[in-house]
Each structure stands twice: as structure tokens, then as C-alpha cells.
Write a protein that binds this DNA or RNA. Sequence first.
DNA 1: GCTTCTTATCGTGATCTGATGTTATGTTAT
DNA 2: ATAACATAACATCAGATCACGATAAGAAGC
Lengths: 265, 265
Amino acid sequence: MNSDSTDTAELSRPARRQAEIAAYVVEHGSVSANDLVEAFGVSVMTVHRDLDELERQGVVRKYRGGVTAQPTSVFESNVAYRLNTAQAEKAALARHARAMIEPGMSVMLDDSTSALALVELFEDITPLTVATNFLPAISRLTELRGVTLLALGGIYSPTHDSFGGMPCAEAVQALHTDLLFCSVSAVSPTHAFHQEQEIVLVKQAMLRSARTKVLLVDHGKLQRTALHRLAPLTDFDVVVVDERTPADLVRSLRDNGATVEVAHL
Amino acid sequence: MNSDSTDTAELSRPARRQAEIAAYVVEHGSVSANDLVEAFGVSVMTVHRDLDELERQGVVRKYRGGVTAQPTSVFESNVAYRLNTAQAEKAALARHARAMIEPGMSVMLDDSTSALALVELFEDITPLTVATNFLPAISRLTELRGVTLLALGGIYSPTHDSFGGMPCAEAVQALHTDLLFCSVSAVSPTHAFHQEQEIVLVKQAMLRSARTKVLLVDHGKLQRTALHRLAPLTDFDVVVVDERTPADLVRSLRDNGATVEVAHL
DNA sequence: GCTTCTTATCGTGATCTGATGTTATGTTAT
DNA sequence: ATAACATAACATCAGATCACGATAAGAAGC
């Protein structure tokens, strides 16, 4: 019996611990290596290795004697953190999304963990053309026969494990796909939001380069906002939410004109 | 003591066997699964798995009862095959190339195994900006701190394990790097050649997008030609050959105006 | 210079994945 | 229909890698 309540599964032990350390650092603002040794019961060496990795991802900054947290936006867009969150919901969203895809279509995916869940379902919808800037998705897709993979290049971001920046936006612009599945970090009743300017740029380009646009939203994202407004929800042809979304929130989205579908676990 | 004469090392067992099977098929034109079972002493299942993989890479075509070879050009550009070839030479070329790189530079790499060897030497030339369309190189570079990775996207080719096509050429066009390291499949005294149109396109774009162009050539490539002419050797600022290149060939290259440097094992 | 913190290197144990065969279940030809 | 072939679905084994800590060597600050 695994008694974990919400998250922590699926991730390797060190990755999980790193995510926890990251949370700890974000909460405390600034801590020493020894604090972490005590808090997590591992050796100094291991703490340092974890911190190195987190620094590589841009989540913390090291200095002699400890580390400080970077802006929480970075923490929240951290891949490891996101992979930890709402997996069941994402799987449900992916299953729902899968039904929209017909063999022969071209599909664009953004660098979201929801999109990654979707990739696992592609094996038997072939042939399929898939464009994405998300490295884990790319790696996985290279192994699938029947899938034409179009990698969207750009500047690599260790935080997101994806490619972005202007080169990526340009690559997106040169395409046009039948479908787009994407996700964001926050959704108000009227708009989709994201913390990072750079990411917003790419996602907006994607919105311009697809015929049917689908937004995948697990209920944790709702009623939050983030710095940058990405697009009104009415720009999406469909907004898919998971079953655990409160009914009044779904109502509220619909009242504002969005086409909402509920994915069942 | 490893008594292998020329190749077969560095590759995982199945990958090596697959390369050997590919060679066997190319030689015989068309063979049955059972033939291969006897020839290689593995089970039918394993043979089929190998053949599936080779088919995915485009090297053979399966039909009920056996497989046929695809054009040898595909075989020759197969990644596994190339990885099998002239490793020591490539390492030497890479070491020589490394000396041309200064911290802070931007470097472009094509999808060649020589370039891959070079990546391994990047760790301590940081900071560095590296652009490449070769997936193994990309994967490796994501792990390096101090390296800004610019992935060149495009259509994935299982045969080369890289991205290509027009999207890739466009991505290349939008850049300009200090250095370019690339390789080709054949080099005459005056020109560089490659079998595949698509690859040629990308490589030519790369040539236009770099200030200093370096061609890495192991001696196996010399005095061969391939279908498509890529560029005159004089387009390269430097042509690096390995130590085992016959002196008269080096002479011949120089007589034709190329700047040749010899990399020492 | 001394202390404290950090990194490098190596050994080891645990864990994972990969590779393979076997058996069983399709599929396709004749 | 039945034989030959192909695939799917486990089970197993080996090898490799990973994670981690201990120790030692190396910076950075006081």
C-alpha cells in the first residue's frame, strides 16, 4: 500500500529528493548545505550533487556556505516539479485528447508534461506527424515507427528540458498542423497565463500555427494567474479539464464563452 | 588482447550484430530469417527484432519470408555502420579540432560521428555555444554545464539519427557561428561528396552559416566519390585528415589548393 | 595559517534496463 | 486447412549504470 496522498511517485529517488530540496529552499529562501544534510538524512556530498543539479536547472543559486532560491516562477516551471504534480489528472487529459486524433493528422505538442503523457498513446494512431520542442517527447517519438517526427529546435532550457527562444518561434511559424495540444501554468475564467515571457512567445506562435487548438488543464491550474497573459480561452477550440474540477469553475469557464470538455479518470 | 582488425568495438552487442546483419543482407541482396539464425547463432525472435530495427532505419525491407537490401547508400549512411568505422581516427580528428576552439565561441556541428567525438571534449572549453542537428550530440550537450545548446530542428531521420529537411536548412540559415565542423562520406582531390540530397542541402546551408569551416576526414573517405557534390574543398578553411592518410593523397589535396592539416593519433 | 566549505575520486551496493529465449497466439500464403 | 512464418507476451539473466558515501585533496574566507 502506497500511502502517498497527492504526488511523489513515478520519479526516481534522487529526482524526487531534489524536487523536495527545491521546495525546501524556496520555502526557506536560503539554507546551508548542512541544514539539508540534516533535513534529508543524506551525506554532504549528495546534497552538493543535488544542489549542482538544481543550479543547472536554474532553480537555486549556490554560493559559499549555502544556496538561495531563485524566483519561484522558475521553481514552478521546473520539469521535475511538474512531473510530480497531478499525474492521474494528466493521464486522463491525455486519454481524452487522444480521441481527437485521427491517423494521418499532424499534431503539435508544447513542452508540457500533459503532452508527454499523450505521446505514450500515439503508438497505435499511426501514421502521424508530430511536431514538438520538448526533448523528452522528442526522444520518445524517435522510437515510434509510423510517426514522422518534426523536432522544433531552439535554445535549450535545462529548466524546461525543451527548446525555445526566437529560433523555436520561427520554426513554429513555418509550420501549420491540424492539431495543437498545449498546457499552461495558470488559467483564469477568461484567460490562459504563463510565468515566462520566452515560453509565452513560443506558445503563442503555436497557437497561430494550428487549425484546432486544444488546451489541457488539470484542476490545479484553475483560479490562478501568472505574470504573462497568453491568450483568451476563446482562442482555443476546446479546453479540456479533469473530472475533479469543481462544477462551478467549469460553469464559470463556459459562461465566459469557452468550449469546455471534461476528461474522466 | 582484442584482435579485431579494423572495426567492431564501442558498439553494444545487438547494435554490432545488427550492423553485421545489415552488411550480410547488403552482400546477399535478399535472405530469409532462418538464414540469419544460422549465420549469427541467435534465435528467430532476435533476428526479427534486429530486422525490425534495421527496417526502421531504412536499411532493409521486410517481406514475408525474409528481407531485401535497400540501396547501399542507405547502408553507408546508417549511424550504426558509421559508428563502427575508424573510431581511432575520428578521435584523433576530434582532438585536433578541439585545439581550434576557444571559450566563448559558437560552434556548429553536423550529424557526423566525428562531430560526436568532438562533443566529448567540450566539457572544459566553456563557455561555448553549440548548434547541431544530431540527436546523440544534442542529448549529450544537454548535460554539459557552460554550454549553450542550440538545437537545429527538422524532420527526424532514423537512418542518421538526426534532423534534416527544409525546416532544418531554414534553422541553419538563421544562424551564423564562428566555427563549423563537418564531415562527408567521400572526398576526391578537389571536392567533398555525399550520397544523399537531403543531407547535402543541410550541409551546404551550414557552410553558408559559419565563418571558419573545417572538414574532418578520416583516410577511409579519400579517393571515393558519392552521388552528390557538396562543395569544393577550397570552400573549407581547413581540411583535417588523420595520420594514416597516404602522403601522396595529402599532397594531391594541397596541390589542388586545399589547406590540409594532419591530426596525430 | 587555520577553519570551513567544496570538489574530486574511488569503491560498493542496489537498481535498472537491455537483451534474449521460450511459449503461445496471431497471420498469411498455398 | 494447414503449414510456415511473424508477432506478442512473459521470464530470466547479465551487464551496466546509478546513487551514495568515505576519504582525500583543493579553494575560499577569516
